[in-house]
Design a protein around this nucleic acid. Structure first.
Lengths: 218, 218
DNA sequence: CGGGATCCGCAACGATACTG
DNA sequence: CAGTATCGTTGCGGATCCCG
């Protein structure tokens, strides 16, 4: 790790020295959604060996991307959280997810989807607009919600809370790939049974407009 | 590689399965500047083991990111080129470089800078503007040039060619980090001797304006 | 039970030498 | 020029074990 340098004075090379090792950016991806405990990270990344998770967390902490904090009593839990520096990887992870999503074909056997994955996928397709809207997206028994306010988006796991006026509930079905990459538009997705909504067709249009569910951009 | 999957139906995970291995994104970075032959890639990445370079190129080709073409005679050279799919990594590489550049401190012993690195670093700091301009950036004996036309930028290795009206020539000195990350603005960089220009102070301002050489954005 | 540490076999990487 | 071949070393994957 000390001597595993690329030998280049280059931002890309330096970034890869910091987060280029296996699993590192997936840990960052999950921490971008919310701070988490070791066990939560493990649950979101079932296939990561525990020693690798522990090693990565130490490396990320040593590099200043992550802080390890101990919650006050009574929980006393150990929580890993991104520093502002680490959170700066947001656009990197979103860009990477946007590019990789178009190679998402069918759900392969053994592959899982988590709420964190859905949140970041939804964020990666967001396009700023105007007006306010509240969405709840369901996929199997996963539920996330998103609040759009102009060019601001907050997306988090869990159902909508509070009283949003005219919330739109969208249910999605596998495979999610075409939906998340804009390979199909809202109407087509509805016809193919990839999604359905509790609201009207115009609700779906609003949703599609906010999240680049529609024809792929040129 | 066949079974080295992350087990997640996620764009980020899929992207990392394709270009997450060591050296892969640095090869893509250099190919984003221009198609290259094996030897050129090797020259731009002196520390890559030759077998790893050969392996990566085969993997990238098999994944459809790179095509291997044989030039017509008399050269007969073998050239590696990004497909449109592979070129889609452009924003990923730029985002990664932008994030990593702020960890570029002093030039570490043994570290090199190449023209391709400069080109991508410059591109990563570009901010669309209006008007036309032609720049030539020099660093040691490296020379690159950039043509700005509104929100279009073309940056390539080598000096300016053709007759640009009022080209601005900027000479940069190590360390480049602060310059490329906006830690200093144009005037301050000039004062610190990080850059100097053949033109006037307003030329430097134009340059700084086009390339986010200036106070870091909030 | 949360939060790791330890150990082992294997696949990938790094360095160098060699070749069509 | 464009790669293979070989070999020592490192890191990863999988499992088990440990400690407060």
């Amino acid at each position: 790790m000390t001597t595993k340098t690329y030998g280049q004075y280059c931002g890309v090379a330096r970034a890869l020295e910091l987060v280029g090792e296996r699993w590192a950016l997936l840990i960052v991806r999950d921490l971008l959604v919310a701070p988490k405990r070791y066990t939560d990270l493990k649950a979101g990344l079932p296939k990561i060996p525990t020693n690798v998770l522990a090693t990565r967390l130490k490396e990320l902490e040593a590099a200043g991307l992550v802080v390890r904090t101990i919650q006050p009593r009574p929980s006393g839990a150990i929580v890993y959280e991104l520093t502002p520096y680490g959170a700066g990887l947001d656009e990197v992870v979103l860009a990477l997810g946007r590019w990789g999503a178009r190679s998402l074909g069918e759900l392969r056997p053994g592959e899982i989807v988590t709420a964190d994955i859905l949140v970041m996928a939804l964020r990666s397709t967001f396009q700023p607009g105007k007006g306010k809207a509240a969405y709840e997206l369901r996929f199997g028994d996963l539920v996330i919600h998103a609040l759009v306010d102009g060019d601001e988006l907050t997306a988090q796991p869990g159902p909508l809370t509070g009283e949003a006026k005219q919330p739109v509930v969208v249910e999605a079905f596998a495979p999610l790939g075409p939906l998340l990459t804009g390979a199909v538009d809202g109407a087509e997705a509805l016809k193919q049974g990839l999604i359905k909504t509790s609201g009207t067709a115009s609700d779906l249009d609003r949703f599609a407009g906010s999240f680049r569910i529609g024809p792929a951009p040129a």
